[in-house]
Design a protein around this nucleic acid. Structure first.
Lengths: 216, 216
DNA sequence: CTTCCATATTAGGTACACCTAACTCTAGGT
DNA sequence: ACCTAGAGTTAGGTGTACCTAATATGGAAG
């Protein structure tokens, strides 16, 4: 079960992430996320099903226990890598995603454990997402989207879901970072922007962006 | 010139290492080092020559300036990874080689610089080999093999050339580590073993092993 | 009930890096 | 001079993961 190719790991990781939003994951969404053509994904999914890593029904793909377990291992390595990059190498949290995407496939179980220990077994990545423990146990995030809040609601930002580096940089520049308080000042109707207040400053935020920010 | 595939990087790195011993590197030695068949290497060498990374004559292959430059970058990343593993994550120096072999292909220029800075720009890897600087300048090692010493000669171990983890572990267990003093007590004739003294203890060393240890 | 659109798959093909088996070439030994 | 060993290449073939173009399928809207 140990030691898979980067490609296999990438597929499983993407499926795991996507299935949070949409349970059986459609192959088209998967293709979009992986930036591959639909037939390529269709074919690969068949292979992964043969290896017992996922099941494929008409509604979409679902990871098996083994598939989930590998996916969580990769996510653990990704998030630990991010912590290493910020805590040891001085990266900012909006700079670490791409680097971690490569590192997650190059790290052994041994190194994974050593990173975790060296950093005091951190429970979250720099974006606030929980790090699965070494047995694959992953604390569920009990949070909602910033976009679900109404005017005058307050929240503490817990995590930021985003992979596009420019978007992350933008969020960071607004101070939309984990552990910070936000207050919603105004919510424009018809999906219009919301005005939020972060540490004294006001910002207009598109709902798309706000839905990517999780609060508690 | 930046951003090559792991395979290309592995070929260039192997050629760079081998050319220290044997100048134009024969494709058979390269195949042996990479653990690939001779025809596979022959074919790949042709492709690398087309990309201008090496030249291929009857005598063997020679890296071009560009090929050398990439090879040194990979070696820099390998050795910096090794230092990160020992200095930050607490690995022993005989445990880091394989891990670094994977990391060296996953590290960006940015991360390379950050590792170097965070560790105070180390000049050598944990095995004592010099780390090329960021412009690819590599200090030449002015050393000789332990096996060249005669009875009653002394030396300071500077570096250990070896990739086999069992051999590295064996050397480490004898205390044959960089910065340690050795004294040759006796040299058996006809390529027989040599008896060396390391911090008070005596060990019999095969000449093969001794030739892998560099002293000053 | 049929048309149409989105989603998904099949068919057929490419690039890449590897393999074994067979051939060539060159240098040494007798 | 010839035969042979070693090194290296050519020929032919495999597996993997990708692609585009064409085809099938399954709901919602007319």
């Amino acid at each position: 079960m140990e030691a898979d190719t980067p490609r296999v790991e990438e597929y499983l990781e993407s499926i795991y992430k996507l299935q949070q939003d949409q349970y059986p994951v459609s192959t088209s969404r998967l293709a979009e996320h992986l930036k591959l053509s639909a037939p390529s994904v269709s074919e690969m999914v068949k292979k992964l099903a043969n290896r017992g890593l996922l099941s494929h029904t008409e509604k979409g793909v679902c990871l098996t226990e083994e598939g989930k377990s590998i996916a969580k291992k990769v996510i653990r390595r990704h998030r630990l890598s991010e912590r290493l990059l910020t805590d040891v190498l001085g990266y900012r949290w909006d700079e670490v995603h791409d680097e971690a995407c490569r590192l997650e496939h190059a790290i052994s179980s041994e190194m994974e454990e050593r990173i975790s220990e060296s950093l005091g077994n951190p429970r979250t990545c720099p974006h606030g997402h929980p790090i699965p423990d070494k047995d694959g146990v992953l604390v569920k995030e009990n949070v909602k989207s910033l976009s679900e809040l109404k005017a005058s609601d307050r929240g503490i930002i817990v995590s930021v879901f985003e992979e596009d580096p420019r978007m992350l940089k933008y969020m960071a520049s607004l101070g939309l970072i984990p552990d910070v308080c936000v207050r919603v000042e105004e919510v424009a109707p018809f999906g219009g922007p919301m005005i939020v207040c972060v540490s004294g400053s006001r910002y207009a935020l598109g709902r798309e962006v706000a839905s990517r920010i999780k609060v508690k």
